[in-house]
Simulated scan of single mutants.
Amino acid sequence: MPANALYTDLSGYYDLMCADIDYPAQSNAICRLHQIFGNGGTTHLDLACGTGPHVRHFIDLGYTSSGLDINQPMLDIAAVRCPEAQFTLQDMSSFEVSEPQDLITCFLYSIHYNGGIEKLTACISSVHRALASGGIFCFNAVDKDKINNDLFVKHTAKQASDVFTFRSGWHYSGQGEKQSLRLSIEKANADATQVWNDEHPMVAVNFAELIALLTPNFEVHVFEHNYDTIKPWDTTAGNAIFVCVKK
């Protein structure tokens, strides 16, 4: 399959694939960080918004929320979930907004969908242009130097008579600016078992490099990858939440 084919062909299964994600906890945590570091505004844009679950929660938290993604089937589902929101088909490395945003988010490690350092740098510039004065950019990331290629996450879910098994894991060769997200979906019922495998190319960056890219335009704060508490990153963990305040 070509890059992102799995998401395109199986967009209807995306929410099932992400059924174990605690969207309210993630949204509430970023809302708290926005209250601490933000400018008090309530305009919000979610990059790589998928089917819009985070947008839904930010609307319920009182934000004027919108989203963008490069996958139209995902956006069609998001529009049904969040009829109040505006969704646009855009690449997060070169997007535009109609008005300045107080908060821009990018959940689920989707910042890595910028396919290389050049596109990641362009994304950071696009975010900076789109933010209002004192606005913040929040996202989570993985450090390429801390990736264990043998680790993966797995969960199962039922839909009607079908049982789905989802697996995903990072892979990094140990050099260069490319890593990948390896995905597998198994769909089984009494009649047959189907398996889809896909590998999504992503940008590889360590946290020192990422902070260096952000620092010219942002005041950068890095926190433990824990949506239940707000704790500074311990400088050793390979996952973290970044809170970037526009300079």
Rank of each mutant, 00 (worst) to 15 (best):
A85F: 15
D20M: 03
F87S: 02
Y113R: 06
G62F: 11
L61R: 07
I124C: 01
Q26W: 10
C82M: 14
I59H: 10
R32Y: 03
A85Y: 14
T51L: 00
Y63H: 12
D76M: 15
Q90C: 08
V55D: 06
F58D: 02
F95V: 05
D102Y: 04
T42Q: 09
A19P: 00
Q86C: 12
A48I: 05
T88E: 08
L33N: 03
S126Y: 14
S93I: 09
L131F: 07
V80F: 15
P100E: 10
D22I: 08
I70D: 01
Q72D: 12
G62L: 03
G41W: 00
T51G: 05
L47S: 01
F37I: 01
M74R: 03
I104Y: 13
H34D: 07
D69G: 10
R81P: 13
V55G: 00
I30S: 06
A29N: 09
A79L: 12
V127Y: 14
E96R: 08
E84Y: 12
F107K: 00
S98M: 04
G115E: 08
S126R: 15
T42Y: 05
C49K: 11
A25C: 05
M74A: 12
D15C: 02
T64W: 04
S27M: 13
P100N: 09
F58I: 04
S125W: 13
P83H: 04
C18V: 01
C49I: 09
G12M: 07
S98A: 02
H54Y: 03
G40K: 00
S98F: 04
F87H: 15
I124H: 05
I70W: 02
D20R: 06
D102A: 13
C123K: 11
F107C: 03
C106P: 03
S27I: 11
L68E: 08
D20C: 03
N28D: 06
S93R: 15
D60E: 14
H128G: 00
M74L: 15
Q101P: 08
P83E: 11
V127E: 08
M17W: 14
I21M: 00
A19R: 04
P100T: 06
H44A: 09
I70F: 07
Y109P: 01
D76I: 15
M74T: 13
G52R: 04
T105Q: 05
F37L: 04
I36A: 02
D91M: 07
R81E: 09
G12Y: 11
S65T: 05
H34V: 09
G50H: 01
D102S: 13
F58A: 03
T51K: 08
L16R: 02
V127L: 13
A122I: 11
E99P: 06
N114K: 10
H112Y: 05
A19D: 02
G40P: 12
T51E: 03
T64Y: 09
G67R: 14
R81I: 12
E99W: 08
K119G: 01
T105K: 03
